[in-house]
């Protein structure tokens, strides 16, 4: 009886994480669609939907946090169950932050959609966004499908996105050299830089999710580890056990 209650409580948390993930992935798809469109116009209906989704994501974060505390207090989970709900909690925190960044990107684009700088860099933004979105999707899949390869793929791409971000900022500065004399140009530069940083932040959060997923699958805390150390330590442990 108690076991059933515990299993149900953990399943509810998993269901909520899945639903929260779906909302984030929907937001990211909309963002992707936006950059594939002709004119980068964020219509009011879409903005309202993004805002509404953002609120639901925030609510999920609070709900999952409360359910996590409840399961720990009432059922005292251990072993893979403990790792599972800790990972769910970490996922909820990181997903909520991704939601914040997506909302921020939509707002920035609404502000500067006609600016030449944005139009000039649309392709680069879209490229960076594609990688970040894939990272989010694969990091979530690594947890849901217990697939460590997706988590490692995500971790490997964190540096790729960081590198693109660094190069893009340099490129923007180079492109606008000598033109940052008026406040409008400065403002646009800051908006654009914030936009790239937000995408880079999304990739960071995906990396956090991948690390949490590895903790669930392997019981190993790989935060702040180098990629080479990580891969060799995971090799040492053999294949993921189906727990």
């Amino acid at each position: 009886m108690t076991e059933t209650k515990k299993n149900n409580a953990i399943q509810h948390i998993l269901d909520d994480v899945n639903e929260m993930s779906e909302l984030i992935l929907w937001q990211l798809r909309e963002l992707d669609n936006l950059f594939s469109s002709e004119d980068l116009t964020v219509n009011q209906a879409l903005m309202d939907k993004i805002r509404e989704t953002e609120k639901r994501i925030d609510q999920f974060e609070v709900k999952i946090s409360e359910a996590f505390i409840s399961v720990v207090c009432l059922h005292k989970p251990v072993a893979s169950e403990l790792r599972k709900i800790i990972t769910c909690y970490r996922l909820s925190v990181n997903l909520e932050r991704i939601g914040d960044q997506v909302f921020k990107i939509f707002k920035i684009i609404s502000e500067i959609k006609d600016q030449p700088n944005l139009i000039r860099f649309t392709e680069d933004i879209s490229h960076m966004l594609t990688i970040s979105n894939n990272m989010v999707e694969k990091s979530i899949l690594s947890f849901v499908n217990r697939d460590i390869d997706n988590a490692i793929w995500t971790l490997k791409n964190d540096d790729v996105v960081d590198d693109i971000n660094y190069k893009m900022i340099k490129k923007i500065i180079k492109t606008n050299r000598g033109q940052m004399k008026d406040s409008q140009t400065m403002s646009n530069f800051i908006y654009l830089k914030t936009l790239f940083s937000a995408i880079e932040r999304i990739a960071d959060e995906a990396t956090n999710i991948a690390e949490a997923s590895i903790y669930y699958l392997k019981g190993q805390d790989v935060r702040h580890s180098s990629l080479s150390d990580l891969e060799s330590s995971l090799d040492d442990q053999g294949p993921v056990e189906n727990k």
């Binding site: 108690t2 251990v78 072993a79 893979s80 169950e81 403990l82 790792r83 019981g219 056990e241």
Partner: peptide, 18 residues
């Protein structure tokens, strides 16, 4: 701490998780 968070054997895992 290791046995309760990341047991090696499936039997241990199953016992700990009820």
């Amino acid at each position: 701490d290791q046995l309760f968070t990341n047991p090696v054997h499936q039997r241990t895992e199953e016992y700990l998780t009820g």
